[in-house]
Design a protein around this nucleic acid. Structure first.
Lengths: 233, 233
DNA sequence: TCAAATATTCATCAATCGATGAAATTGACT
DNA sequence: AGTCAATTTCATCGATTGATGAATATTTGA
């Protein structure tokens, strides 16, 4: 596999690798294969419900290769979580920025929330299973009391603060507490929607489908915005 | 330990025990101790993040005793989940019943949702750590795609259908889809609030506290009811 | 072409997992 | 006192876990 970064001396047995090596297009990228398989498993069963061996088997590599790239099981998990975070964070911040400038003084809570939700729900609606897995993984982490909160904060707090800043503008009367609690409800609703548990499918006897992100997209922004407006003015 | 039920012949090695044996008040009830310890651990780390040994150590009993009472690790988990379900389900249904009769024709979505939330949030506000653990456990299960959905449905669907029936009365114009999706958002917001991840504490820099169920109670019903009203009429 | 660096597999370890059979203990009733 | 069932502990099993050092294969750069 090609590697363009300058070769580092192998001073320590296990190096901390930054970025994946560049490969010629033909060769399969084992590192990505491992991440995809891990994403799939972690999103379904959480960190403790997955074994290194299951991931390796799915990626069709030896378990030692997972340790070669990611050192520990936790390292693998963190790498999976970080991989798509930057992409989606950039999209969401750009989306809020774009809405705020386009709306000007007629900024509304619903517009802001819509801008915040759209990048995620749009990607989810495209149906790429890897992104589906990733979103379900976020839901997993968000409900892992032991260390999920810290991971979520480290990864997503900048975007959330950007959201709240825009909401403050749209709802100038709002108290800080009300804003944060309202976001908390928004976060919970989004988390469950992304977690793909099939809960609503069963409950509604098939009338609604967890995978119908279009339906979620239409309904969630007005629903949540309405809550914000009620609570924050 | 005293046992008042008629002695059952030990035909099978592992019996299916129904209900716990009645004890004299003084002796410690091992079965309850095990359930408490398991509740504590499962709520924090989920099913796969807990070992039988950790639970046994916390309950100060041998691991074999866990198998004696609950046969398997999964059996223990299910017993923990079922233990408080009946209590809280009864309270919630009674609460909705009481509201519906007292409100009569002036029934509102906010009143219904409040009746649905109150029993849980009230118990949470009382501060019993075992109920806190149990509520966090519900959040765990609700975000376990593999088998959480089935467990949630089996345990809580009757209450939810009761809720939706009352909401249908309060919002006669609502479509079924809108009702179910709205409940989905409600469920997500409640789940995250019960999960006690400390997410909002960090995000708000200490201004809001996950453990402040009073604040949640005041805000959640109006917030969610407003979403229902917006979406369902 | 060849040597060094990187990538991948092989073989295996110590620790820990859930589980179980048998023994020891306890309490209830006669 | 003594029996018998219910409860609890003891000792341990086989399987699986995350991890690692050494060996092999592949790619890179001169």
């Amino acid at each position: 596999m090609t590697r363009l970064t300058t070769a580092k001396p192998r001073t320590v047995k296990r190096r901390a690798r930054r970025g994946r090596p560049l490969k010629s297009d033909a060769t399969p990228d084992m590192r990505e294969r491992i991440l995809d398989a891990a994403e799939d498993h972690f999103s379904r069963h959480g960190f403790w419900g997955v074994t290194i061996r299951e991931v390796a088997q799915d990626a069709k590599v030896d378990t030692a290769l997972l340790h070669y790239y990611f050192q520990t099981k936790r390292g693998l998990f963190d790498a999976v979580f970080a991989r798509r975070a930057e992409i989606i964070n950039r999209e969401r911040i750009d989306s809020i920025d774009a809405y705020e400038t386009s709306a000007g003084d007629s900024i509304t809570a619903e517009g802001v929330i819509n801008a915040f939700l759209q990048p995620i729900l749009e990607r989810a609606a495209l149906g790429d299973p890897r992104w589906h897995n990733y979103f379900a993984l976020i839901a997993q982490v968000n409900n892992t009391p032991a260390w999920g909160g810290e991971t979520m904060a480290r990864t997503f707090d900048p975007v959330i603060h950007r959201l709240i800043r825009a909401l403050r503008k749209a709802l100038p009367e709002a108290s800080e507490e009300d804003l944060y609690w309202s976001y908390h409800f928004l976060s919970g609703a989004l988390t469950l929607s992304l977690s793909q548990t099939g809960r609503i499918d069963r409950l509604s006897n098939g009338l609604c489908k967890s995978s119908d992100f279009g339906s979620i997209g239409h309904r969630m922004a007005p629903f949540i915005a309405s809550g914000f407006e009620r609570l924050c003015k």
